[in-house]
Simulated assay, not measured.
Amino acid sequence: MIVCVCNNISDREIRQAVDLGISSMPELHRELGVGTCCGKCVSYAREVLNEHLDGKAQVTELHFKKSTTSA
C-alpha cells in the first residue's frame, strides 16, 4: 500500500528500510523522503515504522532452551 503519495513510498519500502537499520522518522524522512512534501503521510508512516520495529524486537528476544538430555 502506498503510504507517501507524493514520493510513491509504500509500507513495504518502509519495512525494508527498518530491516536495513532505519529506526526513526528523521532517518526515514532523510533516506526515503517520507513526509517531505505535503506531510499527510507522516502519522501512518510512523505507525508502520513503529509496528515493524516492535515486531523486530519481539523476534530478537527469542531464547532457545538447550536440551539437557544426552543422545
Rank of each mutant, 00 (worst) to 15 (best):
L62M: 12
E31H: 02
E13H: 03
S67A: 09
V18F: 02
L49G: 01
Q16G: 08
H29K: 10
K56N: 11
E51A: 07
R30M: 10
A17F: 06
V5R: 15
M1A: 11
G21D: 07
G33R: 02
C38E: 10
V5F: 14
T36A: 10
S24R: 04
S43F: 08
D19L: 09
E31L: 11
E13G: 00
G35L: 06
C41K: 02
V3H: 13
I9M: 02
A45Y: 05
G55D: 13
V42A: 09
E47R: 05
E13P: 01
C37S: 14
A71C: 11
I14L: 07
V42N: 10
I9Y: 04
G21W: 01
K66T: 01
E61V: 00
C4S: 07
R12G: 04
E13K: 02
I22G: 00
N7D: 12
L53H: 04
Y44S: 07
N50P: 04
Q16A: 13
H52I: 00
K40V: 10
V34G: 04
E47Y: 11
K40A: 15
E47K: 12
C41E: 09
C38F: 03
L49Y: 01
T68L: 15
A45P: 06
D19E: 15
E47G: 05
T36G: 07
L32I: 00
F64L: 11
D19N: 12
R46W: 13
E13V: 01
I2G: 07
N7F: 05
V59C: 08
A57R: 14
K66F: 06
V48K: 03
R46Q: 15
L53F: 03
G35N: 04
I9R: 08
S24I: 05
M25P: 15
N50M: 12
F64Y: 14
S67T: 01
K65C: 01
S23D: 14
Y44F: 08
G35D: 10
G39L: 06
R46G: 05
I9T: 00
T69C: 13
S67P: 03
K65F: 07
P26Y: 00
N7C: 03
C6P: 01
V42K: 12
V48C: 05
K66S: 04
I2Q: 12
G39C: 00
R46A: 11
V42E: 11
C37M: 13
I14H: 03
S70Y: 13
V3L: 10
I2R: 13
V42I: 15
G33D: 08
H63N: 11
M1W: 06
I9W: 07
N8H: 12
N8D: 12
C41G: 09
K40E: 15
Q16I: 15
T68N: 15
G55L: 13
A45H: 04
N7T: 07
A57S: 04
I22T: 09
C41P: 09
V42D: 06
K56F: 06
R15C: 11
S10L: 02
L49H: 06
A71Y: 15
L62R: 11
Q58A: 12
S43Y: 10
L62F: 10
R12Q: 15
E13M: 09
G39N: 02
I2T: 13
T60H: 14
L53T: 00
A17Y: 09
E13R: 04
A57G: 02
Q58F: 10
E27P: 05
F64P: 01
D54W: 02
C38W: 02
A17Q: 06
